[in-house]
Computed example of a mutant assay.
Amino acid sequence: MLPEVSRRKFSFGVGAVGILGASSVSAHPFTLPEHFLPQLVNTRQRDWLPGDVHVVPDEFHLYFMLENGRAIRYGVGVGRTGLYESGVFTVARKAEWPWWRPTNAMIRRNPEQYARFADGMPGGPNNPLGARALYLYDDDGHDTYLRIHGTNAPRTIGSAVSNGCARLTNEHVTDLYPRVDVGARVYLYPKVTTA
């Protein structure tokens, strides 16, 4: 199930991850391990179609597919055990600096943390959805409440701590956002490990 990847770094030029680089500034400075930085890779997955997104939770990687099995690979954080949901979804809408409201289930699970946000929270640097969000819907057109979004907590990349969504750093989701079209397919693969 896991793709075979040849690691090749981006050259941060035309066609690469243009907004990223050594001069990127974050409101929450933190240096990600190199394998979680965006990289151009060869997945060798010829059935993964250009424009689609694949999240492999045990690797903590998201692949945005290009031509001929090549992809831009980003590091991600994923849902914790019991909250991560695998499946195939469609990006039905996108938002910059999105408004956020915890789900009713989140409020029930942890009212001390989430009840105060029951009326929602405007977008901004302290919003849990970060700089950008891709909204995942099922094949019947229903919102799953799953998102691929930014985070103001970059230390969570490479861990399973979220309420079910896949998260990238704000810088990386800002790069991914214009690449993913509304209507793109998103594949969230099952977790193999439970740790």
Rank of each mutant, 00 (worst) to 15 (best):
N170E: 07
V56Q: 11
N68F: 05
T174E: 15
V5D: 09
T169R: 03
L2E: 15
E59F: 13
H28W: 08
L20D: 06
S162G: 02
L20C: 08
V5S: 10
T194C: 09
G124T: 04
V180I: 13
Y135W: 03
Y84Q: 06
R7G: 01
D143L: 10
G158D: 07
P190I: 08
H61M: 10
P190R: 11
S159E: 05
R7E: 07
S26N: 13
L129E: 00
H28S: 10
N104K: 13
L134F: 11
K191I: 08
L176V: 04
Y135L: 00
L176C: 05
N110W: 00
G120I: 03
D140I: 07
G130M: 05
E112H: 11
R132H: 06
I19P: 00
R44C: 04
N127H: 05
N127G: 04
I157D: 08
L20R: 07
D139K: 13
E34H: 13
L40F: 11
G82V: 08
R108L: 11
L83A: 05
R155P: 01
V55W: 00
S162H: 06
G77Y: 07
R185M: 04
G79T: 08
E96Q: 09
F64M: 01
V173Y: 11
A27L: 13
F64C: 03
A184I: 02
Y189G: 01
Y74E: 09
T194D: 14
M65G: 03
D139Q: 14
G18I: 02
D139M: 10
N163E: 15
A92R: 15
G120D: 00
R8D: 09
R116K: 15
S23G: 13
D139W: 07
L176Y: 06
D138N: 15
Y177F: 15
V182C: 06
N42Y: 05
L129G: 02
V78Y: 04
E85Y: 02
E34F: 12
P154D: 03
K191S: 09
E85M: 10
D139T: 12
L134I: 14
W97V: 00
R185K: 13
G51P: 02
Y137L: 12
L49K: 15
R155Q: 14
R7C: 00
R70C: 01
R185L: 11
A166N: 06
L83C: 00
N68I: 00
F12C: 05
E85C: 03
V88A: 06
G79C: 10
W97M: 01
E67H: 14
Y74T: 05
D58Y: 09
Y137R: 15
P111M: 04
T193F: 14
A22L: 10
L188H: 03
A16N: 14
S162R: 03
Y74N: 06
R109C: 00
I19H: 08
V17P: 01
L168W: 04
L49F: 11
